[in-house]
C-alpha cells in the first residue's frame, strides 16, 4: 500500500506514553467507569513521563504512527518527585522543534492526567483522535519501508 494515498477505511493509530502512576491509572479509571472513547489509542506503559526519550517519539513517527501523546502526573504530583518537571522542559522544546521541521502540532501532544482524572483521559484521547482523523494519515518523517 502506498503511503501517499488515503487508504480505505483508514483509522488513525495513536500511541500514548502513559506513566504508570498517574495517566495509566487514569486510563484504568476511565475503564472502571466505562467511559467510552474511540479505539484508536494504544497505551505504552512507562514508569514515569520522564522516561520517555524524544527518540521514542521520532521513531514512532518513522514507523508510521499518526499521533503521539506523552502523558504523566501533574506538576508537583510526580511519583518520582520531579520527573515530570524534566518532561515538561524537554517536551516544550521538542514540541517546538517538531513543529519547526514541519510536524503539525496536533500530531505530538503532551498532557497531565492524574489517576483520578478518568473523564479527562477520555476527553483528551477523544479529542486527539478526532483532530488526527481530520488531518489524515501522517506521512512526515516516515520510513519508506
Amino acid at each position: 500500500m502506498s503511503i501517499t494515498e488515503m487508504p480505505q477505511n483508514w483509522e488513525p493509530k495513536i500511541l500514548v506514553f502513559a506513566c504508570n502512576w498517574c495517566t495509566y491509572a487514569g486510563a484504568d479509571l476511565a475503564g472502571l467507569s466505562r467511559l467510552q472513547y474511540p479505539p484508536n489509542i494504544r497505551i505504552l506503559r512507562v514508569p514515569c513521563s520522564g522516561r520517555v526519550n524524544p527518540q521514542f517519539v521520532i521513531r514512532a513517527f518513522q514507523r508510521g504512527i499518526d499521533g503521539v501523546l506523552v502523558a504523566g502526573c501533574h506538576p508537583g504530583d510526580c511519583h518520582y518527585v520531579s520527573g515530570n518537571y524534566f518532561t515538561r522542559r524537554r517536551y516544550l522544546l521538542m514540541q517546538r522543534l517538531l513543529q519547526y521541521v514541519g510536524i503539525d502540532p496536533e500530531r505530538f501532544q503532551a498532557r497531565w492526567i492524574s489517576g483520578s482524572e478518568g473523564p479527562k483521559f477520555q476527553q483528551v484521547v477523544t479529542q486527539i483522535t478526532e483532530e488526527i482523523r481530520a488531518m489524515g494519515p501522517n506521512r512526515k518523517l516516515r520510513d519508506a519501508q
Binding site: 494504544r42 505504552l44 526519550n53 521514542f56 521513531r59 514512532a60 514507523r63 508510521g64 504512527i65
Partner: peptide, 19 residues
C-alpha cells in the same frame, strides 16, 4: 538504561505497534 523498561524494550513495543 532502565531495567525492565530498556530503550530496546520500549522501541520494540513502538515498532510492534506501528509495523
Amino acid at each position: 538504561n532502565l531495567k525492565h523498561f530498556t530503550n530496546e524494550q520500549i522501541l520494540a513495543e513502538v515498532d510492534a505497534l506501528c509495523l
